[in-house]
């Protein structure tokens, strides 16, 4: 299983924030309705106290392949997004999920992930992006954060300078605060008859399901559970606690429903496996594995079987495509 670049970036940023002890609150992929009626959804919006002064730091992650061209509708969408970010005011915040501090400034950071310098410059020119917007390049594989342009002397740029220094310390790339995000398990599609789950999502969620089953056995909770309980368990202390966007939350629930449906209804037809779950109704399932001394060993065996299924499915798909 691979951790996606967005998750790696989030963990790196968290390591930097932790190191500076500056993060007060954050929202991830959170929808904010602007006074003009438009909606923005930055990848990460942080409320920070740095050098004893509070401010907001907005992070927009961008990934551009060298071969891709920014044009047409996509260019318009990104331009609109940029202008929306510029018109974003603290008064637009509801104050329910992140503090509404009207005295504090908002700084915009474009963070290019594993993107060639040429594509970053092209992006800056095409939008075009003003000089006072901070732009950074994050080379995840090389474990390096580089300044592309910054509004020098602002608190945000000073903080980001420190992030650049911190990026030279390998430890800040090693710390996993959040093992996976929505981006890692997004690829689940289907309906009641057929679910397609990619390898990464399948492996992560199978792992989580096994933990969920064993944790319930340890705690002595009933076998019957609601889908919400499964979601809460998976994302306990995960980035969901940052408050993710409403759309992402709905998507997450839908994906979990599809995954549990797949495990209970479809999987036993595909591989020779002891049924793990039984569907009671649309929102409830029952764990079918009994608590015995060999529970963990069996759960491990089942997990390997299910994970192997996901891995093989992908290989088959690849061959046919």
């Amino acid at each position: 299983m691979k951790i996606c670049n967005e998750t790696k970036t989030l963990n790196f940023l968290l390591a930097c924030f932790k190191s500076l002890r500056s993060l007060v609150k954050a929202v991830f992929e959170f929808d904010i309705r602007l006074s003009g009626g438009e909606t923005i959804k930055p990848d990460l919006l942080c409320y920070i106290i740095y050098n004893q002064i509070p401010f907001y730091s907005l992070f927009e992650f961008k990934k551009k392949k060298l071969s891709s061209q920014l044009e047409g509708q996509e260019l318009e969408r990104v331009r609109k997004q940029y202008h929306n970010y510029q018109s974003f005011n603290v008064s637009d915040l509801e104050g329910l999920f992140i503090p509404k501090d009207l005295e504090s400034k908002i700084y915009i950071n474009y963070l290019f992930l594993n993107t060639h310098q040429i594509k970053i410059e092209e992006f800056i020119n095409l939008i075009p992006i003003q000089d006072d917007i901070d732009i950074y390049s994050l080379l995840i594989n090389r474990r390096n954060l580089i300044k592309v342009q910054s509004s020098n002397q602002t608190l945000n740029s000073k903080m980001m300078e420190e992030f650049i220094q911190l990026s030279n310390d390998e430890d800040n790339w090693n710390k996993v605060y959040i093992p996976f995000t929505f981006n890692d398990i997004v690829d689940i599609h289907g309906d009641r008859n057929n679910t397609r789950i990619n390898r990464n999502a399948g492996c992560i969620l199978t792992n989580s399901l096994m933990q969920f089953i064993i944790a319930r056995k340890i705690i002595g909770k009933p076998n019957r559970f609601r889908i919400d309980e499964f979601i809460d368990f998976i994302f306990k202390n995960n980035y969901r606690n940052f408050n993710i966007g409403r759309e992402e939350n709905e998507s997450l629930k839908k994906n979990m429903r599809l995954f549990l449906h797949f495990i209970s209804e479809e999987l036993p037809d595909k591989i020779n496996i002891t049924p793990l779950l039984e569907r009671i109704n649309q929102s409830e399932y029952r764990i079918k594995i009994k608590k015995t001394n060999t529970l963990v060993k069996r759960a491990e065996e089942i997990k390997i079987q299910v994970v192997n299924y996901f891995i093989q499915t992908r290989i088959t798909d690849f061959k046919f495509n």
Binding site: M1, K2, I3, N174, K175, V176, P179, F180, I204, N207, S208, M210, Q211, I214, A215, R216, I218, I219, F233, K236, N237, V296, K303
Partner: peptide, 28 residues
């Protein structure tokens, strides 16, 4: 209880459960 999630060279990441309370934690 260790649940292997991912690894690279000289490195393992496990999501774990504590039998004592059923608490969840990450182990690198």
């Amino acid at each position: 209880f260790l649940f292997y999630l991912y690894r690279s060279k000289d490195y393992y990441f496990y999501e774990c459960l504590d039998e004592h309370t059923g608490g969840k934690f990450g182990l690198q």
